[in-house]
């Protein structure tokens, strides 16, 4: 109930914020360009049904921090956090509501990119199952990046610092996929890869396969990040 109230406020905020539309615009233009690129590159052959999710898997490193940086940091700076923490609701529901709001916004944006698939269907018969798997993957993947963003937003009062730190963190998580190129021991490389965001997307969802362990990974990341963010919000009571 309280989660729902916070969720609704966040969604209303995104819906009324020019900044949110600007980010959606940027995401759509970039994915649109890459989509066109793929069309041109694979003319007379078979286009990758996961091209847009694949592009988003990198874009989210940049956009997730921008979407989440204000979530808690702003409340802290404006002092509304004090009021939120005196409301008769568990601290977790505030964080969860905010997270779900951001995730919902993200869902709408990637939902819009599904329109591109309609365009694709007009010139070929894409493997829609493959596309759906990739979208499920990128949806969870996006949720995980947003949860990382919300943690950093909860850790600092400064939005820019929050955005920068979460960008760095996400970039490292993204990059860890390439661990094998620098780590010569394959087991170590695989462990590092298993910790990366890409490692649970590029070799499964992106090729049309939904693995339960990858879903557990992303949901686990979300769970841990939200738990930590809740604790960070709660820590405002202790100082």
């Amino acid at each position: 109930m309280s989660t729902w109230v916070v969720f609704r406020r966040e969604v209303a905020h995104y819906a009324g914020s020019p900044f949110a539309y600007l980010i959606a615009f940027a995401i759509l233009v970039l994915t649109g360009l890459l989509f066109r690129e793929e069309l041109v590159a694979t003319e007379t052959t078979i286009p990758n049904p996961a091209v847009i999710p694949n592009a988003l898997s990198f874009f989210m490193v940049v956009f997730a921090p921008l979407l989440t940086m204000r979530l808690v940091a702003e409340e802290k700076r404006e002092g509304t956090l004090e009021l939120l923490l005196t409301a008769p609701v568990p601290d977790g529901s505030i964080v969860i509501g905010k997270f779900l709001g951001a995730w919902f916004y993200y869902t709408i944006v990637i939902g819009i990119t599904l329109l591109y698939q309609i365009a694709l269907s007009s010139v070929t018969a894409p493997d829609l199952g493959h596309t759906i798997a990739a979208y499920i993957g990128i949806w969870l993947y996006g949720g995980a990046t947003l949860s990382v963003g919300i943690l950093f937003s909860a850790l600092t009062e400064n939005q820019i610092v929050a955005a920068f730190l979460s960008m760095v963190a996400l970039f490292l998580l993204w990059l860890a996929d390439l661990a094998g190129q620098v780590i010569s021991n394959i087991d170590a490389a695989r462990v590092v890869r298993a910790l990366s965001l890409q490692g649970h997307y590029s070799t499964s969802f992106a090729v049309g396969l939904v693995r339960m362990e990858d879903m557990v990974f992303f949901l686990g990341i979300i769970l841990i990040m939200i738990y930590l963010a809740t604790r960070a919000v709660e820590s405002n009571r202790w100082r």
């Binding site: 905020h13 009324g16 914020s17 404006e78 002092g79 509304t80 004090e82 009021l83 005196t86």
Partner: peptide, 13 residues
């Protein structure tokens, strides 16, 4: 409890 902190916290938007 109804609480009004010293600095009124608002959401300007």
């Amino acid at each position: 409890v109804g609480y009004m902190p010293e600095r009124i916290p608002v959401y300007p938007d």
